[in-house]
Amino acid sequence: MAAFGTVFTPEMIISRFNSNGWSTPEVVASNSINLHPGAHVLHYASTCFEGLKAFKHADGSIYIFRMEQNVARLQQSSALLTLPKVDTAMLRQMILDIVKRYAVDVPTPPGSMYIRPTHIGTEASIGKAAAPSLESMLYVLLSPVGDYFAGGSKALRLLLEDNARCASHMGMVKSGGNYASALQPIIKARATVNADQVLFCPNGDVQETGAANFLLFDGNEIITKALDSSFLHGITRDSILTLARDRGMKVSERELTVDELLERVQKPGTEAALSGTAAVLTPVGTLIHNGKDYAVGSGTSDTTNALRQALNDIQWGSAEDKHGWLTKVC
């Protein structure tokens, strides 16, 4: 089976921005991008993207999960990178059009169609290190994916790192540069302590991992860092917190220190998890700090599994969409 995110539909949809505004979106071959070697994105990382999914329901209809929120976050990232303003209605229609075009290729649950809108600066200028790109390209790429847990879900090992994932004022931008800056710590953690991911905790402040938000479940309470500019405002995170409130759980969005985290995870029944588009909600079994392993709770993932299933049920059409999260494609 192909690795998650490595299979693509043969076509994508694209629009370009210049002094005349946005071009009419067109469907092109997925491998047809041409960039000048001096393109702003290649030198000054003017790039942002989104990740969302389309799901096939039992009656064959196709729905996209929380499209409006992903479009809004791409707008936010583009603004923070000083890229040309994204046309909201145009991007929304681009997503709907390309997903509808490949509706037959949307897998049945637990598979889905992964949708990757991407915005990059294309102006050919290597003299604009301190100036924005005045030209850009917006495209929507599709990747049919299977079950993220096809090989079986396992509790993750996280190394607590006393550094930031990226520049504190850029954490809320979904930009490639932020992911790149986390690679070396992650690779080192895998090699030295067999960790799956790094949980970045600058100055003892528990933030996020290299590619996901962090949630702590202590009894009927969820504790997670309050939103600020230092980390990504996850849409899956928001969805999980909303479903937790629906179930009567207490949601505490606040500062969480490493000391408090390590104290709490030693209590029986405590759980920890990572939230993100690909895996939805993944259990964390071990935290590694100062050379010592801390098992999380008693090794159970009942709350994690229940919340992940509750979200999947909405996405797959087997539970009522009470929050209006689904957009019908066809």
Rank of each mutant, 00 (worst) to 15 (best):
Gln184Ser: 13
Met249Thr: 09
Pro84Val: 02
Thr286His: 11
Leu215His: 08
Thr88Gly: 05
Lys85Leu: 11
Glu161Arg: 13
Leu158Ala: 06
Leu42Thr: 03
Leu281His: 02
Asp238Ala: 15
Gln197Asn: 14
Arg92Thr: 13
Ile222Ala: 09
Lys225Met: 10
Val280Asn: 02
Met170Cys: 13
Pro144Asn: 04
Arg73His: 08
Leu159Arg: 14
Ala279Met: 06
Val258Trp: 10
Pro25Glu: 05
Val265Leu: 14
Pro283Gln: 07
Cys330Lys: 06
Tyr139Glu: 08
Ala167Leu: 15
Thr327Gly: 00
Trp325Asp: 05
Gly204Met: 11
Ile115Val: 04
Met12Thr: 05
Glu263Asp: 15
Leu183Ile: 14
Gly291Glu: 15
Gly177Ala: 12
Gly248Trp: 13
Trp316Gln: 10
Gly299Val: 06
Glu68Trp: 04
Gly234Pro: 02
Lys56Ile: 00
Ala182Cys: 12
Ala103Lys: 01
Glu123Phe: 04
Ser318Phe: 04
Ile186Thr: 15
Pro107His: 00
Leu52Ser: 00
Glu221Ser: 15
Ser32Lys: 03
Ala45Tyr: 05
Gly60Gln: 01
Ile186Gly: 07
Gly60Ser: 01
Ala103Phe: 00
Arg16Ser: 14
Arg16Ala: 12
Pro185Ile: 05
Gln309Asp: 13
Ser239Cys: 05
Trp316Thr: 05
Ala124Asp: 14
Asn312Tyr: 14
